[in-house]
Amino acid sequence: MGSSSGQYDLSFKILLIGDSGVGKSSLLVSFISDSVEDLAPTIGVDFKIKQFTVGGKRLKLTIWDTAGQERFRTLTSSYYRGAQGIILVYDVTRRETFTNLLEIWAKEIDLYSTNQDCVKMLVGNKVDKDTERFVSREEGIDLAKELKCLFLECSARTRENVHQCFEELALKIMEVPSLLEEGSTVVKRNILKQKPEKQVGPTQGCCS
């Protein structure tokens, strides 16, 4: 996947959070590899890189997938740092995963996110199990409004809406000037790093 590294215009960091077992890793794998499989529970943190083109820009998304277990929560807190997008995932067939978003995960964002402009997205997963659904679409929309999030329902299994989810988030991030700048400075910084000696010269001249 990431073989053509360096060939991108913008680079963003995305974080997936939500209760254990709601399908964060599945969502990610479904997006990355077009495959649908049962995955072992994430240990702590995992990440994937995906490059794709949206809105005429070549994007590199580094998507961090966190474990939902409580034990890992203090550990994952550091991954909120510098994330331009955060995806809050719940399972439409398990109500407590939905209520925990407001009670636990939204608070975690307030506490740990260092980026005031970061774009949030609410995603209800497992809509393929429509018969077992416990959280209605309307409730999802209401919560999204309350948390000021984008909203989508999708299924990692059928891959319905999975691509839209990440694309829409990326587009929204590109609409925020400060995030856009951050996304592009990563590239700039690499250029600077290559030749720090040259940069010192002129400043020396004007200061002495």
Binding site: S33, I43, V45, L75
Partner: peptide
Amino acid sequence: AVEVLGDSFSFSGQLEKDIL
């Protein structure tokens, strides 16, 4: 280090494994 060395497809941080 993880981004450079890690196999981006099946990475799980060594540190997290240690904790588990």
